[in-house]
Amino acid sequence: MELLNDQGLRLDGRKPDELRLIKCKLGIFTHTDGSAFVEQGNTKVIAVVYGPHEVRNVHRAKTSADGAFVNCQYSMAAFSMSERKKRNRGDRKSTEATIHLHQTLAAVIRTELMPKSQIDVFIEVLQSDGGNFAASVNAATLALIDAGIPLREYVIACTASLGTGNVPMVDISNLEESLGGPTLTVAVLPRSSQIALVEMSQRFHLDFLEPVLKMAMKGCDYTFKVLDMAVESYLSEIGKPNNWGQA
């Protein structure tokens, strides 16, 4: 199977610079401070935010007068992949994703405004089809916005890779990832064009790094526009009945 056929189309019929359909919803749970659901193609992710709140006993040692302590957990449901997972969390891949998630969110959460408190961000991947971590970052951003936690700005992530003939492709699916070469995941602050995280699944030749990075960043820009519209639509729904908090 070729990643790009002779018409230049991918295995699922997309063009190299075309992202999968993005659907999202904020405020899916009522028992949390913030929550969001993001679907990118077949990848489905839930993000939930608790806080800011008093630091819980288990984490008491991490209370800081400088700012809030951000506690993340990345977990994949046992049914999320075609091969059943025995362990949802605490395995190497999830632990690594948790650390990366923490790093990415720390770039935008204005923790200095919430000293001595704790913010929990929990991710549950319900269906995995490539770009799981990227979708998780996007869902986490939406959940943080839903919770009203002050952010410098959005943090959006996207994947990119190289197709047949060294053509950069954006938003890599599971099949493309398993067949193809290295996948690059980039997390970006779209309004200030800053990069918060870059992760590569394998080695990349230096010559190709720039075009693939550019493709990923374009993907982030597009994703940002979609998510920002969703936030505005959600705000209009929850704001009108109370006149947007104004007297």
Binding site: F29, V48, S75, A77, G90, E124
Partner: peptide, 16 residues
Amino acid sequence: DLSATASPWFEGRRGE
């Protein structure tokens, strides 16, 4: 699996 999304009580080893 009790997901941590249900409650922070289910985070980590305790949830498992």
